[in-house]
Amino acid sequence: MRSSKQQEQILIDEIIVDREKAGLKRKITQIGNTLTFEFKRNLRNFIIMLVVFASVFFLLLLISELQLAQDVALPSDPVDYVGGYLTQFFGFLIIISASLFGGSIIVEDFKKQTGNLLFPKISKTRLLIGRLTSRYTLNAICVSFYYILISIVTYTKYSEIPITLWASLGWALLYTFTILTFVTFMSSIMRSTSATIIVSILFLLIVFNIVMMILRFAGLTMEPLFLLTYYEGIISGSLSMPNPRFAEIMMPTPGGGDPVLFTQWLTPTEPAALIGMLIYASLFLVLAYLIYQRRQSKSE
């Protein structure tokens, strides 16, 4: 627009919008707004995971009912019955759901450039707090839903619910959070959401287990507190503490050698589990946060 008019002094109407002032209250509100927004965004994943948790539960229930139909008696102790739902696929479910909810948590801002829309409006710290809280909440609801199903069925069969089931729920929620922080960390270093999900699941389901196996074959008998997935053991282990913390098992060696006696660690103690998972979660969160901040000034 070539115009000499703009050189003259003219008066312009200034529109006054009564926006909420920037400050602590706004910062807290922004976290709340992010929380609500993320609930909406993750609604589909949430429904999918609820269905998955329910499906796994009903399949295990079906197996249990088929056994009953074949005159296999119910365990006399409800704790043993409950344990049947928490030992087999439950750890796998937690890993899958945490990966699904957390896979995009950081990486999407760079992959899709949604960060260019968001970062001028909200700081990364607040965004991360809001996102992590909302996704953890949805994840925790899925886990709790699974426990509620267990408790209902247990009550119908035994007319009681073992009190340790709720302790186990507490450990499951803490373990879920720890896994979610691991996925968040992976999301901060990966280049896409799908890669984050795949690599996280690979690490949690395969790499850590292989490491544990290598240690076993190397003859190390120390408790593997440094392995994140080892803490999963406390979820079922806490049902009847003090549990046997480890078992001696005969396992064939790879390559067809003679079976060898190994020490297999089953569960950490409660204090060790609490401290270990908190250390892990803190470490992953701090690393993810620092990388997220660094990515702000380098990758964009």
Binding site: V17, R19, E20, K21, A22, R26, T29, Q30, N33, T34, T36, F37, L117, K121, I122
Partner: peptide
């Protein structure tokens, strides 16, 4: 969401 973030 964006309007809320900006305190509208």
């Amino acid at each position: 969401y964006f309007a809320k973030l900006k305190g509208y």
